[in-house]
Design a protein around this nucleic acid. Structure first.
Length: 889
RNA sequence: GGGCGAUUAGCUCAGCUGGUUAGAGCGCGCGCCUCACAUGCGCGAGGUCGGGGGUUCGAUCCCCUCAUCGCCCACCA
């Protein structure tokens, strides 16, 4: 892996082969029995049919950064990948394919359909895992799982049966959210509420005694065909006398009672509510309390069924709605129609409006599972980032509802329940093994037709992916994991349930920290989605700019608790930060490595006395960066970590140290060995600090450093540690003074348009001790980088020129002769002085404030005094210069 | 209807324990193809930190309030 560097940075030539090399060496395959403290991340398993989108790109980049960071810190870092069978989503895809052949799943039959889905998944599934490799994901692919694998299926069955044994699984008739397109039940979480502008119809139901009407309001008039009562508040004076009487339900010949029920708000609408126990959760409850009939008026696909008058039968629910309303109107029973905004449930897969519907489903009783999960959070055994997400988690658990886990699909884990078909037995058998006959009577059995909610397998992943229910080495070594990185959207679907399952089946939370990152959005802050066409294809970005550019851009743009905004219409602009930085690194590498061909001595072998001020400065900067970056990685402030390293490599190393060190690298000159040792060392350190974010380019350059072991990977290079001996506050201050002087001369040159080929003379007067030492130590550097012909320390000559006063009142003067427009210079100096006067005045007031001086901490007061002294001195120096120049205004 | 978050440079965002001449990247202006890099180098302009009130010696930061935007939760039909 050490061919010569191409003259131009070309990620395409590097990333693919490098990833292959990582794989060939098996670097990321972890041995459960190897020594070391484990660090485990479970990937949020993507849908098996998914293709990589920007959200995956972000999510997996963040995980890879963390796993690579901990790996370099010596942890036994395991990142477990897998895919989710995604019941509804996958079944939908295959059903669509069938539809093209003019077939439905019912035409082909259950067994053939499942076979077909399975082969579809085998042929086309798991693409996303291959795509993650392009991103650089350092997963342990030898442990890749699929939630419908035999092992994980065994775990699912074990959990179902165990929960049943613990009395936490039951079958019940409930109002569930039904998707008439997917033909399945949806959990509350899967029925997404969307605010919708609709209407509310006020319908009159005639009293049986013929003395008028009771008006009810509804947003779904078609359900009136299933009404079995009208409810009013038991104390509502308008209706209390009517409770117990009957109403004639229009369009049918049925009589329905008026009942009194606390659930009715007397203040809303007419105060009377139509009750449809089979089609509304509240009505279902009211119905139960009053023993009302439950009249389901629809078919599975939301057409009116045979319980309704003949003319409505077979009509789609929305057609039926129109007909019902029209007939009410014709009968003079439509009182009014109002606009009404309300939340309507939509299927999270296909966006169809869900129909609340009475049905037999399996449920998990959640309270007993939720309590330990809440307790674990309160005890600090699991924490959330951003912290406030913990409140969401707790609130959900406190108000937990039972989980509807059956789905009327064919693709998934079939419910392990067998019903005895024998008359007189009819036993319901829940079993770990497939049953051929009823254990009670030996009669024929029939397995439940339904499958389990997809999340019923994914909530087990932290341990089922490690071999549970077997007590495997993996399970012992890698459970519990460390960090979960995912999107807040699945906090309830997945995260909370994993915590519950982990506690229920392993007695411990599955991870300590949950990092919930933001969403990738476009510049209008809209979530990226296929339907809006505002998505970014990570693979296109990788192809054009490289995975490192993608990763850096995402990491640096993503602060904890914020969204990532990118412009899908202009990838060049969006990904410029990463692309430019990668190119910059490449060129720092090309330059340094080109001058390190003779090798570099280990830094430790260089005596302290050999180090120049610049050397000591870059080493101090490296150390500060190590501290900063390490701390920020630890705190998941990955953007801050990335920014610290970026600044170190680009501004400190490339802009300053490399420029400073050039003469010492050219040819065989004194100090060359020291320069090479320092340059190699700090570049090495910087690459290591950056590796979690930009793995490819850092590996490529690091392997070519003279002191990198042959055939080694930076993936396992030790994480840099601050070495207290080299940290050098004095060097930071002194080299900083040199930088300031260079900056002052450059600014004056730019101000007076001195051509780049032209040198100038510079006089530094009133130099502070620090500036004087800096000038003495780095004379050549100052002269070269500011293009100075003669550099004098001493009194400034009395002639036209440009003047800058630095913080510690060091005066930098550039005699410019004709180049100086005297008026302009006077104005510039005057403006500078005025600005300082303003500061001085404010500072005077502050320090003159009795309250401030008596109440502020001494250290602050001292700091403020120093500022005042410096500003005052600078202002004075500027005024003196103006006088010397003869400024008159 | 509840709960939460955001509002800082033209754009996207930092600013984590209250004291900074309020920062970065992109964009913009001026000057440069300086033998690692024009995906670059140097210099620079640009901000009443959403409005109002309060606490404090001191507020971008803490509290209240208003406005705008966004997210989550919710069985008012």
């Amino acid at each position: 892996m050490t061919e010569p560097l191409a003259p131009q940075y070309d990620p395409r030539a590097i990333e693919g082969p490098l990833y292959q090399w990582w794989m060939d060496r098996g670097f990321y395959t972890v041995d459960a029995n190897a020594p070391g403290e484990p660090y485990v991340i479970q990937i949020p398993p993507p849908n098996v049919t998914a293709v990589l989108h920007a959200g995956h790109g972000l999510n997996n980049t963040l995980q890879d950064v963390l796993i690579r960071f901990e790996r370099m810190r010596g942890r036994k870092a395991l990142w477990v990948p897998g895919t989710d069978h995604a019941g509804i989503a996958t079944q939908n895809v295959v059903e669509k394919l069938l539809a093209k052949e003019g077939l439905t799943r019912f035409d082909v039959g259950r067994e053939a359909f499942v076979t077909r889905v399975r082969s579809f998944v085998e042929e086309t599934g798991g693409v996303i895992l291959e795509q993650l490799k392009a991103l650089g994901a350092s997963c342990d692919w030898s442990r890749t799982y699929f939630t419908l694998d035999e092992d994980l299926s065994r775990a699912v069955r074990e959990v179902f049966v165990t929960l049943h044994e613990r009395g936490l699984i039951y079958r019940g008739k409930y109002i569930i959210n039904w998707c008439p397109r997917c033909l399945t039940a949806l959990s509350n979480e899967e029925a997404e509420k969307e605010e919708t502008d609709g209407k509310i119809w006020h319908l009159r139901y005639p009293r049986e005694d013929g003395l008028g009407f009771v008006t009810v309001a509804t947003t779904r008039p078609e359900t009136m065909l299933g009404d079995t009562a009208v409810a009013v508040h038991p104390t509502d004076p308008r209706y209390v006398a009517l409770i117990g009487t009957q109403l004639r339900l229009p369009l049918t010949d049925r009589l329905i009672p008026i009942v009194g029920d606390e659930a009715v708000e007397a203040d809303f609408g007419s105060g009377a509510v139509k009750v449809t126990p089979a089609h509304d959760p509240t009505d279902f409850e009211i119905g139960k309390r009053h023993g009302l009939a439950q009249l389901d008026v629809m078919t599975d696909d939301a057409r009116m069924n045979d319980t309704v008058p003949e003319r409505f039968r077979g009509l789609d629910r929305f057609e039926a709605r129109k007909r019902v309303v029209a007939e009410f109107e014709a009968l003079g029973l439509l009182e009014k129609v109002d606009a009404h905004r309300h939340a309507v449930g939509h299927c999270y897969r296909c966006d169809t409006i869900v129909e609340p519907r009475l049905s037999d489903q399996w449920f998990v009783k959640m309270q007993p599972l939720a309590d330990p999960a809440l307790q674990a959070y309160r005890a600090g055994r699991v924490s959330f980032l951003p912290e406030r997400q913990g409140d969401n988690y707790a609130m959900w658990l406190e108000n937990i509802r039972d989980w509807c886990i059956s789905r009327q699909l064919w693709w998934g884990h079939r419910i392990p329940v067998w019903y005895c078909e024998s008359e007189g037995c009819r036993q319901t058998n829940v079993s770990r093994t497939d049953l051929e006959a009823c254990p009670a009577c030996g009669g024929a059995v029939r397995q439940d037709e339904d499958v389990l909610d997809t999340w019923f397998s994914s909530w087990l992943v932290p341990f089922s992916s490690l071999g549970w229910p077997e007590e495997t080495d993996d399970l012992r070594a890698f459970y519990p994991g460390a960090t979960l990185v995912t999107a807040p959207e699945i906090l309830f679907f997945w995260v909370a349930r994993m915590i519950m399952a982990g506690l229920a089946f392993r007695g411990e939370v599955p991870f300590r920290t949950v990092y919930l990152h933001g969403t990738v959005r476009d510049t209008q802050h809209r979530k990226m989605s296929k339907s809006l066409g505002n998505g970014i294809d990570p693979l296109e970005v990788i192809d054009r700019f490289g995975a490192d550019a993608l990763r850096y851009t995402m990491v640096s743009g993503m602060a904890v608790g914020t969204d990532l905004i990118l412009d899908p219409a202009d990838l060049d602009v969006s990904f410029a930060p990463g692309r430019n930085f990668a190119n910059k690194l490449w060129n720092i590498g090309r330059f340094l490595l080109g001058h390190l061909e003779a090798g570099a001595a280990p830094l430790a072998s260089i005596p302290e006395s050999e180090l120049t001020l610049a050397d000591r400065w870059i080493l101090a900067r490296a150390e500060a960066t190590i501290r900063e970056a390490t701390q920020q990685y630890e705190r998941y402030r990955l953007n801050d970590a990335a920014a610290a390293v970026y600044h170190f490599l680009w501004s400190d190393l490339a802009d300053w140290y490399v420029e400073q060190v050039k003469p010492r690298l050219y040819g065989n000159v004194p100090g060359g060995e020291t320069a090479r040792a320092v340059a190699a060392h700090v570049f090495d350190q910087g690459l290591r600090l950056l590796h979690p974010v930009m793995p490819f380019i850092t590996e490529t350059l690091w392997q070519r450093l003279p002191n990198s072991p042959a055939d080694a990977t930076i993936s396992f290079a030790a994480w840099p540690r601050p070495t207290d001996g080299r940290a050098d506050a004095v060097a930071l201050e002194e080299f900083g003074a040199a930088q300031a002087i260079i900056g002052a001369v450059r600014a004056l040159r730019a101000e007076y348009a001195v051509g780049p080929g032209q040198t100038v003379s510079v006089t530094v007067s009133d130099a502070s001790p620090v500036a004087a030492r800096a000038l003495a130590a780095e004379t050549d550097t100052v002269r070269r980088l500011a293009k100075i012909e003669t550099l004098t320390v001493g009194a400034a000559p009395d002639e036209p020129g440009g003047t800058m006063v630095l913080d510690d009142r060091t005066i930098v003067f550039v005699p410019l002769g004709d180049l100086v427009d005297l008026k302009k210079e006077c104005a510039r100096l005057g403006a500078e002085a005025d600005k300082l006067d303003t500061l001085v005045a404010a500072q005077d007031a502050k320090l003159g404030n009795e309250q401030f001086v008596t109440r502020a901490p001494a250290a602050i007061i001292e700091k403020e005094r120093e500022k005042l002294v410096a500003w005052r001195a600078q202002a004075e120096a500027l005024r003196a210069k103006r006088t010397a120049l003869g400024c008159t205004d």
